[in-house]
């Protein structure tokens, strides 16, 4: 009523803006909420109920509340779960190490080349994920120049020595899978990093130098903490999809590098063991949520602005 009264003085006809305003936020929220309910909440419930069913594809599935399937799934597939988390974490760290300097350069030093570099980072998205991963098979193929170079420099021997490959080539190995994951999710790391480094005022770095901070100290005390929101966003956007990825391990790996996404994929689409696939999906989901919650808590308390 107070707002309505304020309008009177202007001589404008009195309307009822208060009532009108109240439902607008909900109206704007509605499509998104509806989307979430239909495409997230409902499937999650379906998936949850599916994981507790028993039966087979021919006779149909019946809900039996068979919770023991979770224990069975973990027991059978814990190496794949651990491996997935390990590969995803390694790829995330690699993407951060590769992406940070690039994002920093683009945001702070590139000047008029900024937009061109940004397009180059996004450009791979114009081709399909699958095609790009298949391309890595060509790049790393046994008779290709990359392998020849890696062999001549002793890099393949080094990889073999540390257990990332099992022979003198590169393909079908842990190394290739991690490379593929790093490559495929690198833009998801670079873009949030770029966004937060773009906002970093270079005068703050100057001020740190003026206050006796060496370039290394200035990075540690000013640039890095101020870019943490980008680091957190980038690592999450890389780690989460990488942990559930099933393409890279299938196309670039071997039987020893099977990731949990690949297992879920084959349980759903080939073995047609829906309850097991659903249970594995939930286990993966829980692991990621717990890890991410722990990570965000750790990174997000003090340092984030």
């Amino acid at each position: 009523m107070a707002e309505g009264a304020a309008v009177v003085g202007t001589g404008a006809p009195v309307r009822k803006p208060v009532r009108r305003g109240r439902w607008v936020p909900y109206a704007l929220l509605a499509p998104g909420l509806l989307w979430l309910v239909v495409f997230f909440v409902v499937p999650m419930i379906t998936l949850g109920s599916q994981s507790l069913q028993e039966g087979n594809i021919d006779d149909g599935y019946v809900f039996t509340g068979n919770v023991s399937i979770y224990a069975d799934a973990v027991q059978r597939y814990w190496p794949h779960l651990v491996r997935s988390i390990g590969y995803a974490a390694t790829a995330t760290v690699l993407a951060l190490v590769l992406g940070y300097p690039l994002a920093y350069f683009m945001a702070q030093k590139a000047g008029r080349w900024k937009n061109i570099l940004l397009i180059l980072v996004i450009a791979p998205f114009f081709t399909s994920f699958l095609i790009r991963t298949l391309a890595w098979r060509n790049i790393l193929s046994d008779d290709g120049p990359v392998v020849a170079f890696a062999q001549s420099t002793g890099f393949t021997s080094l990889l073999q020595a540390v257990g990332l490959t099992s022979n003198d080539t590169l393909l079908a190995s842990k190394f290739a899978v991690i490379c593929g994951l790093t490559y495929n999710f690198l833009p998801f790391m670079i873009l949030p990093l770029y966004a937060s480094l773009e906002r970093l005022d270079p005068r703050l770095v100057e001020a740190a130098g003026d206050l006796y901070a060496s370039p290394r100290e200035a990075f540690r005390r000013v640039t890095w903490p101020l870019s943490l929101p980008g680091v957190v966003a980038g690592t999450l956007l890389t780690f989460i999809p990488a942990a559930g990825d099933f393409i890279n391990s299938r196309l670039l790996g071997n039987t020893e590098t099977v990731m949990i996404g690949q297992v879920i994929d084959s349980q759903f689409l080939r073995v047609l063991d829906y309850p097991l696939a659903a249970a594995l999906s939930f286990i993966l989901l829980t692991m990621i949520v717990v890890l991410v919650a722990f990570y965000v808590r750790k990174a997000g308390t003090e340092e984030l602005v």
């Binding site: 703050l204 001020a207 130098g209 206050l211 060496s214 100290e217 200035a218 005390r221």
Partner: peptide, 20 residues
């Protein structure tokens, strides 16, 4: 000498206070 090696300090026009 580099800026961080000089016993000289600046009050910047934009203040450049560390926001974090």
């Amino acid at each position: 000498t580099k800026a961080h090696q000089r016993n000289v300090n600046t009050v910047f026009q934009s203040y450049a206070l560390f926001p974090h």
